[in-house]
Simulated scan of single mutants.
Amino acid sequence: QGMNFVAGTLLLFMEEEDAFWCLTSIIENLMPGYYSLAMMAPQVDQRVFHRLIVQHFPTLATHLESLCVDASCVTSHWFLCLFVNALPLETCLRVWDVFFLERDAAVLFRVGLALVDIFSKALMRTVDGVDAMCQLQATAPMMFDGSRLMTTACIGFQDISRDILLHYRQEVKEEVFGGVKARIDAMDSAHDLEAYHYEEERFREMVDGESDFNIRNYSRDLNANTSMRKSSGAPSLDAAGEVSGPGV
């Protein structure tokens, strides 16, 4: 599920006990519901990430949809492994620095969107589904410029916050819960059903801890943040689906 990559990376820099407690904090506090039987949290977050791609890159999203490309086949690995074994190690550690500093999964969404942004021109040039999937898979391993990635993520997508994620998670959670429960019911396993109800309860507690947040304020500010991304020098996708910005 990705824990082995995370644990292995922690052991490169920590003693075993410190790595254990750090991994425990990631599983229980930073990424709750990710490394579990039903894996509800990653399924919910991939739907949220898809919404964010559609919102920030509508032209690219339409292009990928026309090629029948499901980006979650690639991006789910980014989140489960915290970008380990996806990004080059040095770049990945830059992501981890911010992730542990902010203690917020929103960092992973910003980095994911930044990768899509930086490589969107190449993705727009793809002509079929296989070509698009290969290009999407190649985005993270080619991201050797950690400074460019984190500048794009932290400045260009600073509007992606915990409140926004909670709002979108609430909107898609029932669809995920229903699908997971249907699969477990088909298995006719009392143990799995009990585990499902436990995970569902925990995940609902996490998602339903919604702060006062007005999604209309976020939508209203989206264009302003896009302009900020352009003025900061971070690459961005224009209306024609082309990437603009320095170094592109």
Rank of each mutant, 00 (worst) to 15 (best):
M3L: 14
M3H: 07
G8R: 12
T9S: 15
L10D: 10
L11P: 11
L12F: 04
M14H: 06
M14C: 08
A19G: 00
W21Q: 04
C22M: 04
S25W: 08
I26D: 03
I27T: 04
I27D: 09
E28H: 10
E28Y: 02
L30M: 03
Y35Q: 00
L37C: 09
A38F: 08
M39Y: 03
M40A: 06
M40C: 06
V44C: 08
R47L: 13
F49G: 05
F49A: 08
F49E: 04
I53R: 04
Q55A: 01
Q55L: 00
Q55D: 01
H56S: 02
H56R: 02
H56M: 01
T62R: 09
C68P: 00
C68V: 05
V69P: 10
D70W: 14
A71D: 00
S72R: 15
V74W: 05
V74A: 03
H77M: 08
C81W: 07
L82R: 03
L82V: 10
F83I: 13
V84G: 08
V84F: 07
A86M: 14
A86Q: 12
W96R: 04
W96L: 11
D97L: 04
E102Q: 01
D104A: 11
A106D: 10
L108I: 15
R110I: 07
V111Q: 00
D117C: 12
I118Q: 07
F119Y: 09
S120W: 00
A122S: 06
L123P: 11
R125G: 04
V127D: 02
G129D: 00
V130A: 12
C134H: 11
C134V: 03
C134K: 06
Q135T: 12
Q137N: 05
T139P: 09
A140Q: 07
A140W: 01
P141H: 11
M142Y: 05
M143W: 13
D145H: 15
D145M: 08
S147F: 13
L149T: 08
M150I: 14
M150P: 14
C154Q: 10
F157L: 00
F157C: 00
D163N: 13
L165P: 08
L166I: 13
H167M: 09
R169T: 14
R169Q: 12
Q170C: 14
E175S: 06
F177L: 12
V180C: 13
A182I: 09
A182V: 06
A182G: 03
A182R: 06
R183C: 06
S189V: 04
D192L: 13
L193C: 01
L193E: 05
A195Y: 02
A195D: 07
A195F: 00
A195W: 01
H197N: 10
H197W: 08
Y198I: 01
E199F: 10
E199W: 02
R202W: 03
R204K: 14
G209I: 10
E210P: 14
S211A: 14
D212C: 11
F213Y: 12
R216T: 14
N217A: 15
Y218D: 11
Y218T: 04
S219T: 15
S219P: 07
R220A: 15
D221A: 14
L222A: 07
A224Q: 12
A224T: 14
N225R: 15
T226W: 09
R229Q: 15
S231Y: 11
S236Q: 10
S236W: 12
L237S: 15
D238K: 05
A239M: 10
G241I: 02
G241A: 06
E242Q: 02
E242L: 06
V243P: 06
V243Q: 00
P246G: 09
G247I: 02
